Simulated scan of single mutants.
Amino acid sequence: MTAPATYATTAQPPARQYQHWRETVSATHLAWDLPARSEAAFDGRIRSRALGPAGLIACRCDPCDGRRGRGEIARDDAAYFGLLCILEGGEWLDSAGRETPLAAGHAMLWDSTRRMRFRAPARLRKITLLLPQDLLLAALPDAADRVGEPVSLRDGAGALLLAQLRLLLRGDDLPAMQQPAVLHSALTLLGAAFDPLAGHGSDGRDNAAALRRRIMAHIRGRLDDPALDPQGIADALGLSLRHLHRVFAAGGCTLDRWIWHQRLLRCRHDLSLAPAQTGSIAQIAFRWGFSDAAHFSRAFRRAFGVSPREWRRR
């Protein structure tokens, strides 16, 4: 883990402070568009460090707002989930049409591939953990469907996760050989904080969570089958169709929506590789269960904010 890097707008002349803040936010939190303003003076401070492939950023700042649109999404080098933890103040976030007011003591996930807006109406202090999407999906398979869902950092796994992130930001350098274990610990706590079925064996919900993971594993193994449907899944796993939908919906997402998004994620992964490896855009769409190239293109843009062609060109 590299030593922390610290940025402070107060080190700049007053006429340069807000512009410096705009540049620093995009340098540390992926690409953002913060609107120009007439007031040049601005108090903002950032402390960031890397944790293996992840990034950890502490931020405190005056009120501000910003957005991520197609242009900003196209500037990123990979797809990430951001875990936003509010320590003081509050922030309004609008992601994929879902507006979430986030208060101190709460966290939520955002997806770097989706359009997003934020507004901090008062002085703000927060921590952001940036995670490559494949890394988080291994710990929280339905992470894409948890985007915009607030969770508490005041107790349980959420409180432990926040304490760990604070220590990592304050601590000395961590030997490279210890970083995977520390990151795995943070991912485990994050998954436990977001999974409402975790840790409740007394009422049987742990069994429902295990069954939901089994359903997900079965689906992932057959995403390239255009005939994949709920009835076939239920038959393969020895479940009634009603029970299948009920168990899966307990995780906060419908079965059909989850299958659809998983197919889009597979397509996005293939579009990130060389065309010689994966074929044309239409071939990729058909490979992962889409039967109409135009429908796939529209669905991809709705999910990730850019067309398949723009993603590949990136």
Results as ranks from 00 to 15, higher is better:
2 T>F: 08
6 T>Y: 10
8 A>I: 01
8 A>V: 02
10 T>Q: 06
10 T>R: 09
16 R>A: 01
16 R>E: 14
18 Y>S: 11
21 W>I: 03
27 A>W: 02
31 A>K: 10
34 L>N: 00
36 A>S: 06
36 A>T: 07
37 R>T: 13
37 R>V: 15
46 I>N: 03
53 P>I: 07
53 P>C: 04
56 L>Y: 13
58 A>I: 12
64 C>D: 15
70 R>T: 15
71 G>K: 05
74 A>Q: 13
76 D>Q: 14
78 A>Y: 00
89 G>S: 04
90 G>D: 13
92 W>G: 00
96 A>C: 01
97 G>V: 08
100 T>H: 06
104 A>K: 00
105 G>Q: 05
106 H>K: 10
108 M>S: 11
120 A>E: 13
121 P>H: 00
130 L>F: 09
130 L>A: 05
133 Q>Y: 05
133 Q>M: 02
136 L>Q: 01
143 A>C: 05
161 L>M: 00
167 L>W: 11
168 L>R: 11
172 D>W: 05
176 A>F: 04
186 A>Y: 01
188 T>H: 03
188 T>D: 04
198 A>N: 09
205 R>M: 13
207 N>C: 08
208 A>F: 05
210 A>C: 08
210 A>N: 12
217 A>F: 02
220 R>C: 11
225 D>F: 07
230 P>K: 14
231 Q>Y: 12
231 Q>K: 14
231 Q>T: 14
232 G>L: 09
233 I>N: 03
233 I>D: 00
237 L>E: 07
244 L>I: 08
255 L>G: 13
258 W>K: 03
263 R>A: 07
263 R>C: 03
265 L>W: 08
268 R>G: 09
269 H>P: 00
270 D>R: 12
273 L>K: 14
290 F>V: 14
291 S>F: 09
294 A>R: 13
300 F>M: 13
301 R>K: 10
305 G>F: 00
306 V>G: 03
312 R>C: 10
